[in-house]
């Protein structure tokens, strides 16, 4: 028990290097498992497996994918004892943490199956979690994140709606004193900005713009600048869709400024791209090329070859149009 508790202490330790603490925690859990055998102490064994899995999930050292594989295996071990019937709450927590690990893996491998499994696990876990409990709140929040990620691929509005419901459920249950309350509070306007932009594109622009305005207002008051930048980006996209070029341009510039401040390369890349597009549409071709070149450079740095070739095509089209315009001081490539 002492080794397991020592492991927990290292896992949650605030002082010292987080990477070192996690290594010590893993060592302590592995030592504990030598004593807590499955046969002799099944519940302690399962609890230690769960804790070991958490530590591998969060591990900083080592190969990230291998750590996640080890974490998944350990959660699966724990699940053999923490069944829904025997330990409903522990089962729910273990399933929820397993889901988080799968989400993390899907972020590395881009595998849609992991995200699908995670969503399934989280939805199941919620049926076992005690309503309004910390596990229930955390699971709802993670489910909201997972559904938001799935929407990025599926573009299914129902995913956004389900994510919004999950965030709302988490917010309704969370205590105002919760240490992470702002993160939870920001999740709702963040998803609403994505939904707002989506609704605008689907033709429900009035409702969509209202959601975007509301989410921007809320996020402008929060300390989460990244969430605010993302909401501004969604607003820019919505205005671009509405062919409201002036507002789209202003919002892209707002977005770009904030992403730059946050040193967020993917955000900067997409903002430059949006700004370049809008400037080109408005006929500000030379200005557009400057922005597109910046977008290309960042996408190349991020190894987004698909985006690089997309930008290249756009850049060439703008160059072609520009070349046809009389401009004695500049020469452009062949079209």
């Amino acid at each position: 028990m002492t080794q397991n508790n020592l492991g927990l202490a290292y896992s949650n330790r605030i002082r010292g290097e987080r990477a070192d603490n996690l290594e010590r925690a893993i060592a302590a859990y592995e030592q504990a498992l030598e004593v807590y055998t499955r046969e002799a102490f099944p519940e302690d064994w399962a609890a230690t497996q769960h804790n070991l899995a958490d530590a591998y999930r969060d591990r900083i050292q080592g190969e990230p994918l291998a750590n996640l594989e080890l974490a998944i295996a350990a959660y699966q071990n724990a699940a053999e004892i923490f069944t829904r019937d025997a330990f409903p709450e522990k089962w729910a927590r273990n399933q929820s943490h397993l889901a988080q690990t799968l989400i993390k893996r899907s972020g590395l491998t881009n595998a849609p199956e992991d995200l699908e499994s995670a969503i399934q696990l989280l939805q199941n876990a919620l049926t076992g979690a005690t309503p309004q409990s910390p596990d229930f709140i955390a699971t709802q929040y993670v489910l909201g994140n997972a559904l938001t990620q799935r929407h990025e691929r599926s573009k299914d509005l129902d995913d956004l709606r389900a994510a919004e419901r999950a965030y709302r459920a988490a917010l309704e249950a969370i205590s105002p004193e919760h240490y992470d309350i702002e993160q939870y509070r920001n999740a709702l306007p963040a998803i609403q900005s994505v939904m707002g932009s989506r609704l605008v594109r689907d033709g429900q622009w009035q409702q969509g713009l209202q959601l975007l305005r509301d989410s921007n207002r809320q996020l402008s008051q929060s300390t989460d600048k990244l969430a605010h930048a993302n909401a501004l980006y969604q607003t820019a996209k919505a205005h671009e869709h509405l062919t409201d070029w002036d507002n789209a341009r202003t919002y892209y510039r707002d977005t770009l400024r904030l992403y730059k401040h946050l040193k967020d390369d993917p955000g900067m890349a997409k903002s430059y791209e949006g700004l370049g597009n809008v400037l080109a549409t408005q006929g500000n071709l030379a200005r557009s090329l400057v922005e597109l070149a910046q977008a290309r450079e960042l996408y190349a740095k991020l190894a987004r070859t698909d985006k690089v070739s997309e930008i290249d095509k756009l850049y060439q089209s703008v160059e072609c149009v520009l070349a046809k315009q009389p401009h004695p001081d500049l020469t452009y490539g062949q079209c």
Binding site: S220, R249, T250, D254, R257, L258
Partner: peptide
Amino acid sequence: DETIEIEDLEQLGVRSFSE
């Protein structure tokens, strides 16, 4: 919106020119 700096905006109590 083109030249304003984030510091200017923050001094004015906002984060975006659109505000």
